[in-house]
Amino acid sequence: MSDNQAGSHQGNAGGNDPEAVRIPRRTPMACQFCRGRKLKCDGRTTCANCERRNIPCIYVPVSDQPK
C-alpha cells in the first residue's frame, strides 16, 4: 500500500463526514395507498406517491384497520 492510500482512510476517521453519521428516519405511519403497494411513504399530508398519481392520501392507524 502506498502512503497516499493509507492517508485517505485517515481523513474519514475524524467523523466530519455528515453522510457517514446520517440516520434514516422512519415515517410514523404510511398512507393506505403506500401501505397497500408496499411503497416508501414520506408521511406528508399528501404524500409524494399520492400526489404524483393525483389520488386522495388517507392515513388510517393500524389498530383501526379490519383484519
Rank of each mutant, 00 (worst) to 15 (best):
S8F: 09
R52C: 10
V21H: 13
N16L: 14
I58K: 05
R22P: 00
C57N: 00
R35Y: 06
Q10H: 11
S8D: 04
I55N: 04
A13M: 09
P24M: 03
K67L: 14
N16F: 13
S63L: 15
R25C: 06
G14A: 09
P56S: 06
R25Y: 02
M1L: 07
C34E: 05
V62T: 15
D17N: 14
L39T: 06
A48H: 05
T27D: 02
A6I: 13
K67V: 14
C41W: 00
A48G: 08
I23A: 12
A6W: 08
R44W: 07
T46K: 09
V62S: 12
Q32R: 01
C41D: 00
R26I: 11
P28L: 05
R25W: 04
R53L: 09
R37P: 03
P61T: 09
E51C: 06
D17H: 08
D17S: 06
M1S: 13
Q10A: 10
S2F: 11
E19V: 14
I58H: 06
L39V: 06
D64Q: 12
G43I: 03
P66M: 12
R52Y: 08
R35W: 03
R37F: 06
P24A: 03
D42H: 00
Q5E: 14
G43F: 04
D3S: 15
T45Y: 12
A6N: 12
S2P: 14
P28K: 05
G14T: 13
G36D: 01
H9G: 14
K40W: 06
M1G: 15
G15D: 01
N49P: 04
R35H: 03
Q65H: 08
T27F: 04
P24S: 01
G11L: 15
D64K: 11
C34L: 05
C31S: 01
N16I: 11
